[in-house]
Every structure is written in C-alpha cells, then in structure tokens.
Amino acid sequence: MKKLLENRNLSGWLMVSPLAVVLLVFLLMPIILIVIVSFWRATEFSIIPAFEFDNYEFLFGSSVTYKVFYNTFKYALITWAFTLVIGFTVAYYLAFHIRSLTWQVALFLVCTIPFLTSNIIRMISWIPFLGRNGIANTTLMSWGVIDEPLEWLLFSDFSVILAFVHLYTLFMVVPIFNTMMRIDKSLIEAARDAGANGAQILWNVIIPLTKPGIMIGTIFVVTLVMGDFITVRFMSGSQSANVGRLISNDIALLQYPSASATAIVLLASVLITIGILLRFVDIRKEL
C-alpha cells in the first residue's frame, strides 16, 4: 500500500480524482453530448437521434448566422479595447502610484467588491441612468447640450458595450495588477538612472513586463463577451443579437439540435481565439 502511494502518478490522480470526476461529468460529457445532438433531427415536440448535417447546413446557409457572428466579434473587440485601456490604467495607478501596501490592498478591494455582487442587478442598475427620462438625458438637457432625449443611450449597441465594460473591466485589472506587482522595482530605477523619462519607462519597461497579465485579462474578457447571451439580450432590449442569444432562442423553442450545432461553432471559434492568444503566454508560469 505504502509503495503504491509513493507512485507519483497514482497519488497525483488520487488527489485530483474529485476534480477530474466533476470535469468529466459536468464538462467533458456535456460537450460530447452537444456534439452528438448537433447531428440529430428535431421535430416540433421532440428530438430524434440521427446523423445528418442539416443543422450545420442551415446554420452556414443563413445570412443571420454571419451577422450574429460578426456582432459577437465586434462586441468582443470593442469591449476588449476599452477594458484594456481602463484596466491597465487602474492597475498601473494601484501598482506604481500608491505607495503603501495597506492602501494598495484597500483600493484593490474597492475595485473587486462589485464583481462579487449580482451581474443582473448591475445591468438593471443602468436603467435609471440611460433611460429616455434617465439621469444622463435630463442632465444633458438641463446643461443645454441636447434639446431632446438621446434615444440611443439605452437598448442599443452603446448600452451593451457599456454594460460589458462595467461588468468585465475587473477581469483585466486583477491579472495586470498581479503581474505589475511582481515587477522588480530596481528595473524601473535602472531605467530612470539610464535617463529614461516616464513615458519611456512605461513603454519600454512596464508594458513588455506586463504582457502576460494583459494576455490573461484578454482571454477572460474575450471569452466572457463571446459566450454572453444575457447582457446582449437585456441591454439591447432584444434589438441586437450575438451567437449566445441565437443559441438561447433555439433552446427556448426546444430546438436543441440546432442550438447544439450553433454552440459547437461558437465553442470552436472561442477555442481557436484562445489558442491563438495562448501562443503568447504560459498561463501556469504567470500566476
């Protein structure tokens, strides 16, 4: 028995077995099942095992598909740009401009707490701001900037991206802050001694060293936005769609095979995106 436990592979697997079981039953098997069901046929009331490519043919033959995929990537790209700029700035401020560790931790917590509250509530809370008679419109009108309420504030691409940035900037702040805190401060002093100014230090020292954090944040934000279906539905007032919504609409109509086919294509595009991003960073080393 003792000899058995000393076997590294066996004791390793013994320890990760609960994890492996959960991932097997609730991740791997569901994915495999989705792949299988994506070849099935659906009638109005039930789904029938089959092996046909109709779901995919329909998916790739419809112009709607290309439009929602375009939307999905558009949201991901724009949200990524905003969260990166905001997240980097906030992390940079916390890591290099706040001098005591206590304050760093305190301000970091201030940024983290909203992440631990409900996403749906945080989405709802934009309504009084952006609505036709909301705070933004009434303020702008009282300042005389606009004469009548702006219609595009709520239930538009603008509000969708605003909500994404609001919900997910933290996923940029945390990894970037984490990598920045590990930068040896003497490197920055050396750069300054060598005559670099603030902008040069930022561009030539800090940004290159922060790249792993930026990549991890990017992976989080891109996958969260690409896989989303609720923010787009809620914040666009059901006026625009991304792939996630396409899937959830199919599910609501009990069209599981076509939902599955769409889900597989979505998963493939997310994994390809991640695969490309992972070429630039070794996640395990950077934690």
Partner: peptide
C-alpha cells in the same frame, strides 16, 4: 474557465 456558460 473559457467555455461559454450557455454550453455548460
């Protein structure tokens, strides 16, 4: 971690 939640 990266799989779209709706797939799960």
């Amino acid at each position: 971690l990266v799989i779209p939640s709706i797939l799960v």
